[in-house]
Design a protein around this nucleic acid. Sequence first.
DNA 1: GTAAACTTTGTATACGTATTCATAACGTTT
DNA 2: AAACGTTATGAATACGTATACAAAGTTTAC
Lengths: 339, 339
Amino acid sequence: MVKKPVTSIDVAKAAGVSQPTVSRAYDENSSVAPATRARILEVAKELSYNPNVIARGLSKQKTDIIGIVMANLTVSLFYPEVLEKFTTRLQQMGKQVLLFTVSAEHSSVDEILPRVLGYQVDALIITSTMPGSEIIEESTRVGRPIILINRLAPGTSANAVCCDNVDGGRIVADFLLDAGHKKITYLAGVEYSSTNSMREQGFTRRLRERGFTNVSLEQGDYYSYDSGCEAARRLLDTDDPPDAIFCAADILALGLLDTAKYELGIKVPEDLSVIGFDDIPVARMPAFDLTTIRQPVDEMVEAVAELLSRPDGESPIGETILLPGELMIRGSAKVPSGD
Amino acid sequence: MVKKPVTSIDVAKAAGVSQPTVSRAYDENSSVAPATRARILEVAKELSYNPNVIARGLSKQKTDIIGIVMANLTVSLFYPEVLEKFTTRLQQMGKQVLLFTVSAEHSSVDEILPRVLGYQVDALIITSTMPGSEIIEESTRVGRPIILINRLAPGTSANAVCCDNVDGGRIVADFLLDAGHKKITYLAGVEYSSTNSMREQGFTRRLRERGFTNVSLEQGDYYSYDSGCEAARRLLDTDDPPDAIFCAADILALGLLDTAKYELGIKVPEDLSVIGFDDIPVARMPAFDLTTIRQPVDEMVEAVAELLSRPDGESPIGETILLPGELMIRGSAKVPSGD
DNA sequence: GTAAACTTTGTATACGTATTCATAACGTTT
DNA sequence: AAACGTTATGAATACGTATACAAAGTTTAC
């Protein structure tokens, strides 16, 4: 048998006040006599009353729900951490995360966004995929700012919080050149993703700036472990393999490393240096010990928190926040000698 | 400038019908003249109308939101996959996931559950932690069934979908004995978690059944990689180390393996067999090549989907669904010879 | 001691949808 | 042709909270 839920009206009756007073008791900014508030909260606890957040959302036109859309949540092993940190941080701010997944095959962001907006989310965080610009504008127009993680959308009203991928690529280029590598390859991930192209850009430009002209590019077809394995076979099982590979993402580097070491018998870092990007949790494990660029997840989360805590009516529009990554020097790549 | 959102009233006016008719046009079971419905849906598309799910939830007393509470989402590397699969499946069913995280240090489930219930979730999925029984009963009483993943709560009204941990332990016991191991240790995770104690129970009982009496137990203090590393040092850096270790979770096994191989120079599986539990994505990578029990995640997701698709008023109460795990034989443990 | 300012509370209503009930339109049966 | 069942629609209202406004009570200032 389903018991009726307790409403603010029940509490009001029991406490001998009107319903709006109960509502005000839960709002710090409303002026309620301290004694009244105390009594109401006590009665509420006794009846185990819980404000109906849905009804509140309808009334306030603000749900405290943040939509997060994640494409391929688990394949790269990077986004689970991002999701957890976002969720925890938003929870601290009194907001909740409504999670939407998008898989390359099944559903596109654009199909799902109307549904997300139907939930009246206060804002929308989108990772590893890029919505169409009409939807971005539509969402912004109805007061629901969009925040892209690790994508840029210049010229739209979407905001972006992004690791400085170009700079990350540059850092890796310097590190590899300083260590004396002669044949350097960039292993790309998803071809048209902005993370990929920016990392590549920063990397190859810096190499050329320093006079290294023949960077070879290898296209991984996806951000996945298997894609890294396959790339390793194509790249390394030849007469003249590269002596350094910069992978667009850690997960590619893991596949590449495993295949190089266990299948092809290549010594790392003696014969081959491998560098990744992300610093996923497994990268630091001795089995991989992967030199990589750490994405500043905590800082990205803070940046989003700041964007979301703007006062009503001052929602951010078209802002871009670029945060520097950091090179984590481990054992999968030769370290430049200190002279 | 924030534009007002389009409501069913706007659509009704534009289509020359009443608001309830618009509402009915979106409900398959309501009888609306086909021509009328078509006109309404067309007008709705033109105005880019999107039903307000929040208002609908208030009116129907059903939000199509499922709360998922996850403790320590990322540490074990197991639950991200679970979360993604749940989210994707529920999305297919027209439901959405509202995500809550709980970290051992910061917040307990019981603190957060009232808040979850405030969002009027239709049901509650809880992983890797165990709510107090008062809250379970309260939630069930107001018509929000609770589904525990990988925990059992006999005697309460909570439902449970669970890998058969006892049986998994048994399978590992047989496998290790068949391979001729003489000194076998169980590396426990969180001491009082039911997953841990059931795996241990199945394992040690089976060993004793087959006449192997001195199973040693080692307490890892947490389901984490570092905990596995520390356990390795305590267990293996001795005169008489075990020749087989069954870890309560893959993540422990990874730490143990890495430390054994790279720090202590132990050969796996020649000198030591290691078996895990979960089959997390990295377990299959050659760097670990971990023999482990695969948790039947897809089946668990299906089981939950079935529980959630019961007709209104017939919500499941106190049901337990036990699903068998499967031994994934890889290279981290000696394989019994086939005689 | 009175006017003004502020605090506290209640009344009425809005938020956007779904549903109950009544009514109208229409076809079917006798 | 009357009685009836069916389908399509609108009017009224419920869902649970927040807020604008008004009214009453209290404090402050002179």
